[in-house]
């Protein structure tokens, strides 16, 4: 429809939500050019309280995306470059002896920020990876017996280069599950690339970004996501997809219940981002591949490594199933 219909029952008015979201999307889009779908998915993860794993070769704008999101929200941003020698305490923080008081005080690590870019997450050891991932899924950090709650909103954008093997520690499937959405940046169109070149003439444009949304507003949006209406037929459709991944024989491990729940939540997020307070089948269909393909395991090791294969299988399933109407 011409006029987006918005939620009434939130703290913000419907129109406020719409303008807020448009502002956020436009702001990010003004820097990250030609990638409206990717931006949308990242914002979905933000609103649905999930995290994003971006896979692509370096230089595709992964970092830019994370920085643009962080800069658009009035909140803190940290970038973590993962290296083989990175230790968990380098991320989480550690207790430091305070000579003055004679006791240990906790010095929070870089994870205590609202938006975190975890660059090349597969370069570090599994131990460090799991420290990050646990913090992501729990929303809190436990160091030496003390629990520290992470501030909301909390969004981790992790990147990895799938075309590199030497000295990498590939995230196992169980860990991949912590990411709500896995996406690729992909090469931009020629025209977009030209624009990128021209906008960079006078320096990094992301530096000039101004925050357009506050952290509090993001939290309100997150609450609104949970109120997005889901029709029974859509739930059935979602379950159809999930079950198809379990029944099929290309996949050894189908989508877990958590995976189903995540898809549900992500679809709610996408609905809100699209200016609706109800899910439509398209939301599920659009999100099935980015949300599910890293949660399944192919039948044979010959396929296991190929994310492309998993994506193809999920896409195949989605293209086969009957859409409710």
């Amino acid at each position: 429809m011409n006029s987006p219909l918005m939620v009434e029952a939130t703290d913000l008015g419907a129109a406020d939500l719409a303008t807020l979201l448009n502002r956020l999307l436009d702001n990010i889009g003004s820097v990250v050019l030609g990638k409206p779908e990717v931006i949308k998915l990242a914002v979905v993860a933000l609103l649905a309280e999930g995290h994003v794993l971006v896979e692509d070769v370096p230089g595709m704008g992964k970092t830019l995306l994370a920085r643009a999101i962080a800069a658009s929200i009035d909140c803190s941003f940290r970038r973590l470059q993962f290296t083989p020698d990175l230790l968990p305490s380098d991320i989480l923080g550690s207790s430091v002896y305070n000579a003055g008081t004679g006791d240990f005080i906790f010095k929070p690590g870089p994870i205590f920020a609202n938006v975190i870019l975890a660059d090349e997450v597969n370069r570090t050891t599994p131990r460090t990876q799991s420290a990050l991932l646990e913090a992501m899924s729990d929303g809190q950090v436990s160091v030496e017996g003390n629990t520290h709650i992470l501030e909301r909103p909390f969004l981790v954008i992790a990147t990895q280069n799938p075309y590199e093997f030497e000295g990498t520690y590939v995230l196992p499937e169980s860990q991949l599950d912590r990411f709500m959405i896995r996406l690729r940046m992909g090469y931009p169109l020629r025209s977009e690339e030209r624009r990128v070149l021209s906008t960079h003439r006078s320096g990094e444009p992301v530096e000039t970004l101004r925050p357009v949304v506050t952290g509090e507003e993001i939290r309100q949006l997150q609450r609104a996501v949970r109120k997005v209406r889901v029709d029974d037929a859509i739930t059935e459709y979602l379950l159809d997809i999930v079950h198809a991944t379990r029944d099929g024989d290309e996949l050894n491990v189908g989508v877990s219940t958590r995976g189903a729940l995540t898809l549900y939540r992500a679809a709610q997020g996408l609905a809100l981002v699209s200016g609706r307070d109800y899910i439509v089948p398209d939301d599920i269909k659009t999100l099935a591949v980015p949300v599910l393909s890293h949660r399944v395991v192919g039948k044979s090791f010959l396929q296991a490594g190929e994310f492309g294969a998993a994506e193809a299988i999920i896409r195949d399933i989605v293209d086969r199933l009957r859409v409710p109407s």
Partner: peptide
């Protein structure tokens, strides 16, 4: 083989 593929360098 599957398990092996999860190993350090199965990509």
């Amino acid at each position: 083989s599957l398990a092996l593929a999860d190993g350090p360098a199965g990509r």
